[in-house]
């Protein structure tokens, strides 16, 4: 079923949005309970000035990502994928790879309701695994880690994420090899070449993400119109 049809809206979009808004907002509010706990039990809380100051400082560092990340990841994650991935975190290293493999396994066509369902299940499955491991870490992390030699720990800590990023890039790249060049050139120019000419402002992470995602989309649009894609 095409994702722009009215049945899609009724069958999928409406229940998904309803569930998403509730299941994201409720835990967001509950995340302040640890602060309330410290106040009630120990009588400590940030002063109004400190709270505002800390908020300002942290928003200066991450504020741009609050806006840029949902917009940039949306075309990859879809509707349900966005609600789940932003609540559960670990988007680029866990959620997107899981959604991509699920879609490969099921062989669905992007932009259909079937693809949305399959991606949702892939992401939901990844949450189960991820929560299992973080809960295990909370209960017995230090003990389990003491059993692993430091070389193994370092390999996992330093190399799994780059290896996954490389593998996922290849996985997507094989579906439209012509786009690989542009998708790598845009961030390379901004992160590596621009600073050589004193244009360090172009290397701000949030700006590079927006330019890479939407620049590659724009180039894909041109290539698609020229008939060079698919």
């Amino acid at each position: 079923m095409n994702a722009s049809s009215p049945e899609f809206k009724k069958l999928w979009k409406e229940p998904v949005v309803r569930l998403g808004v509730i299941t994201v907002l409720v835990p967001t509010a509950l995340c302040f309970l640890p602060c309330a706990y410290l106040y009630i039990v120990h009588g400590v809380a940030p002063t109004f000035d400190e709270a505002l100051k800390a908020w300002g400082m942290i928003a200066t560092i991450f504020g741009a990502f609050y806006i840029v990340e949902p917009i940039s990841y949306y075309p990859i994650l879809g509707l349900t994928g966005t609600y789940i991935s932003f609540l559960a975190g670990n988007i680029s290293n866990v959620r997107i790879p899981s959604a991509a493999v699920a879609q490969d396994v099921a062989g669905t066509e992007t932009g259909t309701l079937e693809a949305e369902i399959v991606a949702t299940l892939g992401v939901a499955g990844s949450v189960v695994t991820n929560l299992f491991f973080v809960s295990l870490a909370a209960v017995a992390g230090a003990y389990i880690l003491s059993l692993l030699p430091p070389s193994v720990q370092n390999a996992f800590k330093n190399y799994t994420v780059p290896a996954i990023f490389g593998a996922v890039f290849c996985q997507f790249g094989m579906k439209a090899p012509i786009l690989i060049l542009f998708a790598a050139a845009i961030p390379f120019l901004m992160l590596y070449v621009a600073p050589l000419y004193g244009l360090t402002f172009l290397s701000a992470a949030w700006l590079v993400i927006v330019a890479s995602v939407f620049g590659t989309i724009a180039i894909a649009r041109i290539l698609f119109k020229m008939g060079k894609l698919g």
Binding site: I76, S92, L179, I180, A183, L191, V213, I217, A220, F224
Partner: peptide, 25 residues
Amino acid sequence: AKWLGFLSLAAALGCFGYLNINTIV
């Protein structure tokens, strides 16, 4: 629908292009 598929693919490639180049740089 066909273009929508490429749009998602291009977004994914742009995103992971950034993540990989960021690692390498």
